[in-house]
Amino acid sequence: MVITSLEEKKPNKSKIIARNFDLFYGDFQALKDINVTMPQNSITAIIGPSGCGKSTFLRSINRMNELIPSVKTSGEILMDGEDIYTQDVVELRKTVGMVFQRPNPFPKSIFDNVAYGPRAHGLKNKNILEELVEKSLTDAALWDEVKDDLHKSGLALSGGQQQRLCIARALAVEPQVILMDEPASALDPIATLKIEELIQNLKKEYTIVIVTHNMQQAARASDYTMVFNMYPDRSGYIVEYGETSQIFTNPREKTTEDYISGRFG
C-alpha cells in the first residue's frame, strides 16, 4: 500500500520488557500489572493523567524509586533479557541514564558537570575525559554554544541550555537507555522544540523513554505511546500501548480517545 511506504521503518529488537510488573509504596499499589515491550532505538512516550504512575514507572526502569524506602516491586523489568532488579543498581544506572523535569546541573563548571559521571566511574585520564566531554556536548547539540566557556558554571546557562547540559551529562556515561521525566516542561517553546529535535537524533544510538504531560509533544516526538490511567483505587495501569501514529489518530480504547481528545473526566 502507498500509505506504508510513507512511514519510517520501525526497529524490531526489543530493549526493555516489563512483565507483570507491580509497584507498591507501603500498602499502596502504585502500578498494577504493567506489561509492555519497548523496541531498541525508539522513542516511547508515556502519557496519562496526573498521579497515574507515569513517573513511577519511568523511575522503575533505573530503580530510582528505591530512593523512597517503602517501595516494593514484583514482577520483572528486563533489559536485553536480563532482570534489572537482580543487577547491581549502580551498574544499572550507568546503563540507564536519566534527565529530569527541571534542568539540574550541578553548581560546577560545564566541563565538570559533563565529566562528573565518567569520573565517578573511575575515568581519570584527562585526554579521554576531554574527548568524552566534547562528544557528549556535541551529541547534546550544545558544544558550539559552550566550547569557549567550559570552565563557566553550568548554572550560568539558559534553561534550555541547562537541560541540554543535563542531557550531555547523561550521555557522558555512555548509557544505552535514556529516561526523560518531562524534560521540557520548564522550558520555553523554542527550547522545547530544540530538545525534541535532539531526542530524534539521539534515538539512532539510544533507546529513549519520555514522560510528558504535553500530548502534542508526545505526538511530535515519539514513535510509540503508552497511555497510563488509574483504577478507582488510584493504582496505575497501561490503558493502551501502540505506535504514536495510531494512538493519536485512531486509538483503540475509549479511555485513550477521551484522554487525548481532551474529554477526560
Binding site: N62, M64, L67, V90, E91, L92, R93, K94, G97, M98, F100, R102, N104, F106, Y116, G117, A120, H121, C166, R169, A170, V173
Partner: peptide, 11 residues
Amino acid sequence: SYRQASLGLGA
C-alpha cells in the same frame, strides 16, 4: 535533584 542526578549517573 542534585542527589537524584548524581545517583542517576551511577555514582
